[in-house]
């Protein structure tokens, strides 16, 4: 599903965020990506969602080389990837409904056609009753659920989450992770970047570890032991 081949990323100014990263996440797999702050987790996710381009090496999704994706095609790639952020990235002056419906509207659905899917997505994350609320009226955990609903409303085959539990207490964090597990059960590949080692330890999923831009553990040796 996601394959990195000798990927390096050096930012302008000389900061090397990633160097020679190799790994492969299978379709339908759920994996954690961990490492200290500044280890390159966010950069790695940005390379998948084409917010950044690698300096060297190549990134493949479903066998497609992302180097061949032209800037005008980037939006279509992003429609295949559900993205979840620590700061939710919700539109604060729009209702929960409008926020979740946004990806569908972008794809050309009418509001009526989008309604059923939006309600279904909100039910899946357990906040169907908040459809007319504004994000400001919701708690941090609920806002994160809106972000997740928005990411899954188009049913993408791949979910990326950048510190989805960053601002949540352990109980809420576990609930969010359980949600991801549910999506994973129906075949969605999920890659979660987090530095919450406690959370990872309680779960038995593949964990990729970055340190200073290098992949020091791609999580496969552990499973072989």
């Amino acid at each position: 599903m996601i394959r990195f081949e000798q990927v390096s990323k050096t930012y302008r100014g000389g900061h090397q965020a990633l160097s020679h990263v190799d790994f492969h996440v299978q379709p339908g797999e759920m994996a954690f990506l961990t490492g200290h702050s500044g280890a390159g987790k966010s950069t790695l996710l940005k390379l998948i969602s084409l917010m950044e381009r690698p300096t060297a090496g190549r990134v493949l999704i479903n066998g497609h080389d992302l180097r061949k994706i032209k800037p005008s095609q980037v939006p279509y790639v992003r429609r295949d990837i559900g993205m979840i952020f620590q700061d939710h990235r919700l539109l604060m002056d729009k209702t929960v409904f409008d926020n979740v419906a946004l990806p569908l509207i972008i794809e050309g659905y009418s509001v009526q056609e989008a309604r059923k899917r939006v309600v279904a997505a909100l039910e899946k994350v357990g906040i169907a009753d908040k459809v007319k609320h504004y994000p400001k009226m919701l708690s941090g955990g609920e806002q994160q659920r809106v972000g997740i609903a928005r990411a899954i409303v188009t049913k993408p085959p791949l979910l990326l989450a950048d510190e989805p539990t960053g601002n949540l207490d352990p109980k809420l964090s576990m609930e969010i992770i359980r949600l991801f597990e549910e999506f994973n059960k129906v075949g969605v590949a999920v890659l979660i970047a987090t530095h919450d080692l406690g959370l990872i330890a309680r779960l038995r999923y593949r964990t990729l570890t970055l340190k200073d831009g290098r992949m020091i553990n791609d999580g496969l040796e552990d499973s072989e032991l």
Binding site: G28, I61, N62, H64, I69, Q73, Y76, V77, R79, D80, I152, K155, P156, P157, F183, V186, G187, V188
Partner: peptide, 15 residues
């Protein structure tokens, strides 16, 4: 339109 997943509409499960 799906660039990366040509058969996305007929893939099983979530897709």
């Amino acid at each position: 339109m799906s660039l990366l997943f040509r058969n996305r509409s007929i893939e099983k499960g979530a897709s």
